[in-house]
Design a protein around this nucleic acid. Structure first.
Length: 290
DNA sequence: CGTATTTGACCGGCGC
DNA sequence: GCGCCGGTCAAATACG
């Protein structure tokens, strides 16, 4: 879940994976003539490993710095949209727009210039399971779906919900999958609930498709009421942190796999390892005999 | 049978 | 004025 991943952030924060291997496993004593070659080979691999570790460390640092810059840039962009109060209802410029950047904008706020009181709009990004194709986001409120539409800029359908907990609650939400990452559900909330947050249901029964049956979607729920843009920005950053952590974890696994694969595929290494182990066993047996 | 979801039709805003 | 598009309505359908 997203909250846990935030807690793991501190442990993940050391930007780079420690890929260095302690290859000095053979004591310098008890080396015969054949072993010298192995030691030489191990030294060579060790130095190469150190060099690669340095390179990887540098790449990781650059990556994290770049991510930081992107986050700061998007936060600034968000702040700029809040400052702009002129209602300029303009249709979106489609195609080639970064999904995240597009979701930062608050254009929906300005699409209804007739309304004297513009409803508060907020967006929440929810990462779901790749196999989960539903558009149901469990956020603690009870929603009634009243429409679904395929929009021009996104092949995945957009679902429209109304808050059904209180009869007069004006809050609506739209749920649509991100263009770039279909596992991310972009939820847009409009308006404010006229009932308290204590009414948020606990059983997790709401928002299940098919006539209020059980279930749920298995998606990550970010419960919140529609509120300030600052919280939106935090949500946005939070979702990105989750993404970054996932990426780091993936990189970690990938590197470990790559190392294991490359080492096991190297006939020199496997031969050296086998002889080193057998040599060590022979040493131990000869030592115990004395 | 009651309630929620689905989905095609309709409406209104906007650009050309 | 016309067509496109997003948003909403409501009849049909599904489900418990």
């Amino acid at each position: 879940m997203s909250l846990n991943s935030e807690a793991n952030l501190s442990s993940m924060e050391p930007t780079c994976v420690d890929t260095s291997l302690n290859l000095n496993v053979i004591p310098s004593s008890h080396i015969d003539v054949a072993g010298e070659f192995l030691v030489e080979e191990l030294r060579r691999l060790n130095s190469e490993n150190k060099r690669l570790s340095e390179t990887l460390k540098h790449v990781c640092e650059s990556y994290v710095a770049l991510q930081k810059h992107v986050s700061e840039f998007n936060l600034l962009k968000n702040a700029d949209f809040e400052k702009e109060e002129k209602p300029s209802p303009k249709r979106k410029v489609e195609n080639g727009v970064n999904a995240y950047a597009e979701c930062n904008t608050e254009e929906e706020t300005f699409k209804r210039p007739k309304q004297s009181t513009t409803p508060k709009v907020s967006k929440v990004f929810v990462r779901t399971d790749a196999s989960d194709t539903s558009l149901y986001v469990r956020d603690g409120y009870q929603w009634r779906k009243y429409g679904q539409k395929v929009t021009r800029d996104n092949p995945s359908p957009r679902a429209y919900f109304k808050c059904s907990y209180a009869p007069g609650c004006p809050v609506k939400k739209k749920v649509q999958r991100s263009v770039e990452d279909p596992t991310v559900l972009v939820t847009t909330y409009e308006g404010e609930h006229n009932h308290g947050e204590h009414e948020m249901e606990i059983s997790g029964k709401s928002e299940s498709p098919g006539g209020g049956g059980g279930g749920g979607t298995g998606s990550v729920g970010c419960s919140r009421s529609a509120s300030s843009g600052r919280i939106e920005a935090l949500e946005l950053v939070h979702s990105r942190v989750v993404d970054m952590n996932a990426q780091k974890s993936w990189i970690h696994q990938f590197l470990v796999q790559q190392m294991a694969t490359s080492l096991t595929r190297d006939p020199n290494f496997t031969a050296a390892l086998a002889s080193a182990i057998s040599g060590r066993i022979l040493d131990d047996t000869s030592m115990s005999k004395r």
